Amino acid sequence: MTLEECITEAAQRMEISGLAYGHGTDNAWDESACLVLHSLGLPVTEQADLTLQLDDQQLASARTLVEKRIRTRKPAAYLIGTTWFAGLPFDTAEGVIVPRSHLADFILDEGQPWVVANDIHRVLDLCTGSGCIAIAAACSFPGAQVDGTDIDPLALQLARQNVAKHSLGDQVNILDSNLYQHVTARYDLILSNPPYVPSATLEQLPPEYQHEPSRAFDGGTDGLDLVHRIINEAGSHLTEQGALVMEVGDSWKTLQDSRPELPFIWLETGVEDSGVFLLYARDLRSL
Results as ranks from 00 to 15, higher is better:
202 L>D: 00
227 V>F: 05
202 L>N: 01
216 A>D: 13
197 V>M: 11
217 F>A: 05
224 L>P: 11
224 L>A: 04
211 H>W: 15
199 S>F: 08
201 T>V: 08
220 G>S: 04
220 G>P: 05
215 R>I: 12
222 D>I: 03
205 L>Q: 04
213 P>I: 10
224 L>D: 08
196 Y>P: 15
197 V>K: 14
216 A>G: 13
218 D>G: 09
212 E>N: 13
208 E>F: 03
226 L>F: 14
198 P>M: 01
197 V>L: 07
211 H>V: 12
213 P>V: 08
209 Y>K: 10
201 T>W: 00
210 Q>E: 11
228 H>D: 14
207 P>S: 11
198 P>I: 03
225 D>N: 06
221 T>W: 04
221 T>I: 04
201 T>R: 00
219 G>P: 00
209 Y>A: 08
228 H>V: 10
206 P>Y: 15
203 E>M: 05
225 D>M: 12
214 S>N: 10
221 T>K: 10
216 A>W: 13
210 Q>L: 13
199 S>W: 04
209 Y>N: 02
209 Y>V: 07
220 G>T: 00
224 L>E: 14
228 H>K: 14
201 T>L: 11
226 L>E: 10
225 D>W: 03
203 E>R: 07
197 V>Q: 09
229 R>S: 13
206 P>R: 13
212 E>F: 02
216 A>C: 09
198 P>S: 02
227 V>Q: 14
219 G>Y: 13
